[in-house]
């Protein structure tokens, strides 16, 4: 994923800014030891807030869609954050027609979700129609995985501490959604091409975020994370 990101930056020629929460690194925050909730908070939410503060961006674009998750279904295309990056779902501005109110006060920022009304299938149809390069992890191939409570976690390097008796097995898998390792589970799949993926998607009986561990921490967990500043 990171190699893909760096390659795209080179090919398209955009300036890539990378930020890692050094405080989290120093404290050795790690999903295996500290759990997915704390890891997400420190290494994603906090890191993002640090980067936004550091560069002083007015707006950050994201690819979130309303069909992903129920609290996202309520979010605006232009979604405002306080100076502390908090989202308050109760004071969202009404968003009518295509007249977006883009004004912000001192210190406030906007998360912009232009794909709000796209569905997962729309995204794949668009990738196919426009021939957009994607991360290879989206295509199925045999990969070493361990099964943890129904989640297939990839174990192709030494980052994942194996539990006693756990042996990675080769299974043909792909990722339907890519979050941070190892909080995203793979799915068993034979889809090696875009057409395969589209066919698989049309027949899918599970939703995309099923593979996201963080959504399952507690009821309403996405809404809570978003209030705290998660993308």
């Amino acid at each position: 994923m990171i190699a893909f990101r760096d390659r795209m930056a080179r090919e398209i020629g955009f300036e890539l800014l990378v930020h890692i929460n050094q405080d989290g690194v120093a404290r050795g925050i790690n999903p295996f030891v500290h759990g997915s909730a704390l890891h997400t908070d420190v290494m994603k939410t906090e890191a993002l807030k640090q980067a936004l503060d550091h560069y002083g961006f007015d707006a950050a674009f994201g690819g979130a869609r309303r069909d992903e998750e129920k609290s996202r279904a309520k979010e605006r295309v232009f979604s405002f954050r306080t100076a502390n990056h908090r989202w308050d779902p109760k004071t969202q501005r009404p968003e009518l027609w295509d007249l977006y109110n883009t004004r912000i006060g001192q210190g406030e920022s906007i998360r912009v979700f232009p794909l709000s009304n796209w569905t997962e299938l729309n995204v794949w149809e668009y990738i196919a129609a426009e021939n957009i390069p994607i991360v290879p992890l989206y295509f199925a191939k045999p990969r070493p995985v361990v099964d943890r409570g129904g989640m297939l976690i990839m174990a192709d390097d030494d980052r994942l501490p194996l539990r006693p008796g756990e042996v990675p097995q080769m299974r043909k898998v792909r990722f339907r959604t890519l979050g941070c390792y190892p909080l995203t589970g793979a799915i068993e799949s034979d889809a090696e091409t875009l057409d395969d993926i589209l066919a698989e998607m049309r027949a899918a009986r599970t939703s995309e975020r099923q593979g996201r561990l963080i959504d399952h921490d507690q009821a309403g967990s996405m809404e809570k994370k978003k209030q705290e500043g998660y993308f």
Partner: peptide, 9 residues
């Protein structure tokens, strides 16, 4: 299926 916000639920 639809009432997504905690307060709504």
């Amino acid at each position: 299926l639809l009432d997504g916000l905690q307060a709504e639920r």
